[in-house]
Design a protein around this nucleic acid. Sequence first.
DNA 1: GAAGTTCGGTCAACAATGTTGACTCCCGCT
DNA 2: AGCGGGAGTCAACATTGTTGACCGAACTTC
Lengths: 185, 185
Amino acid sequence: MLQTGSSVSTRESIHKAATRLFRSRGYSRTTVRQIAAEAGTDPALVIRHFKSKELLFLETMHLTLDDEPLLDVPLEHLGEGLAELLLDLGGSARGVFLALVHGSNEPHIHDRLRDTHEHLFVEPLRRRLDGPDADVRARTAAAVAGGLLYALWVAGDQGLLRMDRAELVSRYGALLQDVLTPRTS
Amino acid sequence: MLQTGSSVSTRESIHKAATRLFRSRGYSRTTVRQIAAEAGTDPALVIRHFKSKELLFLETMHLTLDDEPLLDVPLEHLGEGLAELLLDLGGSARGVFLALVHGSNEPHIHDRLRDTHEHLFVEPLRRRLDGPDADVRARTAAAVAGGLLYALWVAGDQGLLRMDRAELVSRYGALLQDVLTPRTS
DNA sequence: GAAGTTCGGTCAACAATGTTGACTCCCGCT
DNA sequence: AGCGGGAGTCAACATTGTTGACCGAACTTC
């Protein structure tokens, strides 16, 4: 009983420490021994509990998006809503996203990033659209959304980073809106 | 004389092997010993010539874009021209881009990626634009361009990958064009 | 209650990694 | 002839992820 309790708690300690470290330092720069130290346990136990560093990474790095706000917003303001959502995406989401992108040299992490992109960006948008090219529009909008995160976080475009949030929302919102519901000009 | 010749040739052998390996396997998955083996020399010499694995990476991974085609194309077709350029970007550019993105957990590589994004995408576009918000439009277009490469290569969106190239060019070209020279509607 | 099995924990070791230092060798200059 | 410097070789180091051997405590079974 004490054993089980201890095991659960150390397993959770490892999970918590790994989450924090992977988020803040990425995959390659966090070490199993660091995780073990921060969890107050042994490196061997980290592997015993999670099989490998990579599986531990996959178990901890889940990127979820609170897309309920997007369900309510009317279709003609979906672009702006998505832009707001992206720009409000705070620290923890940033860390997970960057960890996935950086780590996606590893095949399994790449798979995880692909899945994340698919059902974090593509699917929610796809569900709101109609028409024969609804899929293409959803994927294009997802690419544009990913491009914003890429420019801000991966490439670190200082010009965009220093921009007024309201103007970025307005510009990117209009852009996304044009992709989602094209003007028939 | 023979020494110098030998040194230059081994240095170039290392350079060539490193370029190939970094492009095809990325930063973390290529090893100094692999580079040395492929160059037919010793791991220690690799370090002696290039100081460290990271400096060797930075010396070999330069992403250049043949943007002369973009200089000729009239402003009203710049979007389409850029889209064509991006979608024709072949294997070697893909490898370098992915290596930079994946490796950009390392601060110096991140700097390199930021510079590359800046004077590969932002600057050429910026040069073609006028008006008070020319900088923002150039940066937004660069983010959209990066988003395409992100969606195709980093996230690996199968839907976009399977799309007809002509339709992708047309769609993304129009999208980029709207960012670069907005319709005043 | 005793024996055994199982499970969490500790420790030492392994192979592979990037990197360094000692040593050899050979060319070109004095 | 000697020698100084640069290229190459080799062994070693610390650090990485991972594994196996042992230990001890608790639950199960007789």
